[in-house]
Design a protein around this nucleic acid. Structure first.
Length: 306
RNA sequence: GGUCGGUUUGCCGAGUGGCUAGGCGCUGGUCUGCAAAACCAGUUACAGCGGUUCGAAUCCGCUACCGACCU
């Protein structure tokens, strides 16, 4: 299957990944898998910039709106689901387009993510309480006892990382680090990574504009309809959390919109940080369709034709 | 014209003689299951000129600008 190509289209939010993915997939006569941690949730539409119906009707999309915000979803589940879909698609196509901005999800799909046992929810709850009552130092101390390897390698100032290592170590009775193989999984397809980027100021302007569009399209109503789910992780998302604060009366609508813009810009910056360290990515402007197709033809000898 | 108050980094805002305020913004970075998450780092300025002093954002003088009041 080495003559099967997974073509990744990555980049910061708002740069135009969806539009480019549809053109590329259309030209290649294949389908698109979304690698986006928030577009997976069917309750979220406007705030997550899910591809519009005109796009969805032109090219078939997978892993969009296939989950509820009430479901658990993570990079590992994405890996499994995406691989299943790719296997199916590769029976009929030489290429498949994977578009999205969730770096960890894409990494999980390309090099894999180790199988780590599930966590006892009670243990997580207790750890969270301890974090609140005793502080990070206490958890750090316990981690050093239970899993010195993780203690030495993870960011000890980051509660999320310590919690993760600790809860796995506690539920399994084995150190978290013992589950990490640090080896890439074998994939039976080839990979081609295309990054979309543009001038920072122009990107920010696009992001700001898109936020205005979202508000006009009724983002506030969508957020209201999700009010019952506000504590779920799926709603810990730019565009939603700020408007929850507005609905609480904590901030004005103007401030909320401003914060959505700012947080979207920051998100874009972090995405670029993530993708920039991957030198396998070939970067293009978001309007460079011809160059991207040339690049694909030069690097993927599959014999298909446009 | 006079009196008084003010002028601090991109913005807000402390600081009255020697020690990095801080916040926001911005930028760079980290990353194996909540990742649109979580976390780390950087960003040293005191309106201008002159003076006092070992040393001035802090004291003195002049100039400029802003504001309040007076004539």
């Amino acid at each position: 299957m080495k003559n099967k190509y997974a073509i990744f289209i990555v980049g910061p939010t708002g740069v135009g990944k969806t539009a480019m993915a549809v053109r590329v997939a259309g030209a290649l006569g294949t389908e698109i898998i979304s690698a986006d941690s928030r577009q997976a949730y069917k309750e979220l539409n406007i705030g997550t910039a899910v591809p519009g119906t005109e796009y969805l009707s032109r090219v078939r999309h997978h892993l969009v709106h296939h989950r509820s915000v009430q479901d658990k979803y993570n990079a590992s589940m994405f890996e499994v689901e995406a691989l299943q879909i790719m296997e199916k698609l590769f029976r009929e196509h030489d290429t498949v387009v994977i578009a999205g901005g969730s770096g960890l999800y894409i990494q999980a799909l390309i090099v894999g993510i180790d199988d780590v046992p599930g966590v006892d929810p009670e243990i997580r709850k207790r750890l969270l309480e301890r974090l609140y009552d005793e502080g990070l130092e206490s958890l750090r101390f316990e981690l050093k006892k239970l899993d010195p390897d993780s203690w030495a390698s993870i960011d000890l100032k980051n509660p999320a990382r310590i919690l993760k290592a600790l809860e796995i170590s506690l539920t399994t009775g084995k150190p978290y680090s013992s589950f990490l193989t640090k080896k890439s999984k074998h994939r039976d397809f080839s990979t081609l990574k295309i990054g979309l980027n543009m001038d920072r100021a122009a990107l920010y302007a696009r992001i700001d504009e898109r936020v205005e569009d979202m508000m006009e399209d009724g983002l506030l109503d969508e957020v209201k309809s999700c009010l019952a789910y506000r504590d779920l992780n799926a709603l810990n998302t730019v565009g939603y959390k700020e408007l929850f604060d507005y609905l609480d009366g904590r901030i004005s609508l103007d401030v909320a919109v401003r914060l959505i813009k700012r947080n979207s810009r920051r998100y874009a910056r972090r995405q670029l940080t993530w993708f920039n360290r991957d030198d396998e990515i070939a970067w293009f402007g978001p309007d460079r369709f011809e160059e991207i197709m040339d690049h694909i033809h030069r690097n993927a000898q599959t014999g298909y034709q446009i």
